[in-house]
């Protein structure tokens, strides 16, 4: 019987939503990847923290005319993607706190984030 391989996948999100498509298409990879039963973590660093800002308001028919995909982050739990880590420095220097974020995350300091990165098999950066 073939042994099942479980690898540690880390998705590193460092870009703000809407200005470019990276945040949305990164999320699409995460959703597809969830079906593969790997050990998945998401890191939000730099402007990537803005992806998780509460109260994003836009739709195809209003505002900037772009789909609001932010609610998908809340659906991740249903796909067993539950390890979301936010870089404390990135969050704080943007004037945000955990209360501003639309999902439960773990806020990591540098040493914790560095350790998380070091443990990974596959790091996909967007």
């Amino acid at each position: 019987m073939e042994e099942e391989v479980i690898k540690k996948f880390l998705y590193v999100n460092r870009k703000a939503p809407y200005g470019t498509i990276y945040a949305l298409e990164s999320l699409e990879v995460v959703l597809i990847g969830a079906a593969f039963d790997q050990d998945v973590s998401l890191a939000f660093i730099d402007d990537g923290v803005y992806q998780l800002k509460k109260d994003q308001q836009t739709s195809v028919d209003s505002g900037i005319g772009v789909k609001d995909f932010s609610r998908t982050y809340r659906a991740l739990e249903g796909y067993d993607v539950e390890k979301l880590y936010v870089d404390r420095k990135s969050m704080e220097e943007r004037g945000l706190s955990e209360d501003d974020l639309l999902v439960d995350v773990q806020v990591f300091d540098e040493a914790q984030m560095a350790e998380l990165m070091e443990q990974q098999d596959v790091v996909l950066s967007f």
Partner: peptide, 20 residues
């Protein structure tokens, strides 16, 4: 093909290199 091919590549490869 689908995005699953990227995940599979991550699983099967020993190193994943990202250029972007």
């Amino acid at each position: 093909s689908g995005l699953g091919q990227l995940i599979e590549s991550g699983i099967q490869s020993e190193r994943m290199m990202v250029f972007g």
